[in-house]
């Protein structure tokens, strides 16, 4: 049993994966820590601002289809079988 993380667009390039299964994480912060541990600085650069090391505002993370802003932000708890989507929205037209 684990959390499923789905990567889109640039996050797919940074991880080389479409999705991954992560065990032993209890909230979004610990999930992101584990992802950075697995995929390294290339992923960290896409997730966090280089100045503040805070999550970039343009990184969209949905837990079971709901934005973190509407949940408990980075403290949003995770449980087995949750699905987390990480994507950077595109803007051109």
């Amino acid at each position: 049993m684990a959390v499923t993380v789905k990567f889109f667009a640039g996050f797919r390039e940074a991880t080389g994966k479409i999705q991954d299964s992560i065990e032993g994480v209890n909230n979004v912060t610990s999930l992101l820590d584990e992802l950075v541990r697995r995929f390294g600085e290339k992923l960290a650069e896409r997730l966090y601002s280089s100045d503040t090391r805070e999550l970039r505002k343009t990184v969209n993370i949905l837990v079971n289809g709901r934005r973190l802003d509407f949940l408990q932000k980075l403290n949003t708890p995770l449980k087995d079988e949750d699905v987390v989507a990480i994507f950077p929205p595109v803007a051109g037209g």
Partner: peptide
């Protein structure tokens, strides 16, 4: 989400808040 680089179409579930 369409990604022409690996030619995939994926769906992200989005809930109304």
């Amino acid at each position: 989400i369409f990604n022409g680089m690996d030619m995939t179409f994926d769906e992200i579930k989005v809930n109304r808040d």
